[in-house]
C-alpha cells in the first residue's frame, strides 16, 4: 500500500504519471513529493510507486 495524501491507496507498481492521470489531476497545477523529495515532472513517467511509499500530491488552487 502507498500512503497518498495521508490515505492508504493500493497503488503499488504503478507510476506517478499513471496515478496522476487516473486521479484527474492537471499536471500544470501540481507539485509531487515522494518520501519527502520533490519529483521532477520529467520523472513522473519513470517513478514507480512501491509498498510503504509516502506520496504527497499538492494541487494548487487560485487566489492570493
Amino acid at each position: 500500500m502507498v500512503i497518498i495524501n495521508g490515505e492508504k491507496v493500493n497503488a503499488d507498481g504503478i507510476t506517478v504519471e499513471q496515478y496522476i492521470k487516473s486521479s484527474d489531476y492537471n499536471t500544470a497545477f501540481i507539485a509531487v513529493e515522494l518520501n519527502e523529495d520533490i519529483v521532477s515532472k520529467a520523472n513522473y513517467a519513470s517513478t514507480v510507486l512501491k509498498d510503504g511509499d509516502v506520496l504527497e500530491v499538492v494541487n494548487f488552487v487560485g487566489g492570493g
Binding site: 501540481i30 507539485a31 520533490i38 521532477s40 499538492v58 494548487f60 488552487v61 487560485g62 492570493g64
Partner: peptide
C-alpha cells in the same frame, strides 16, 4: 510564494524545490 495564479504557484514550488 504569494501568487494568485495556480499554475505559477505550481511552477515556483517545483522550481525552488528542485
Amino acid at each position: 510564494e504569494a501568487f494568485d495564479n495556480p499554475q505559477a504557484k505550481a511552477m515556483l514550488a517545483n522550481t525552488v524545490l528542485e
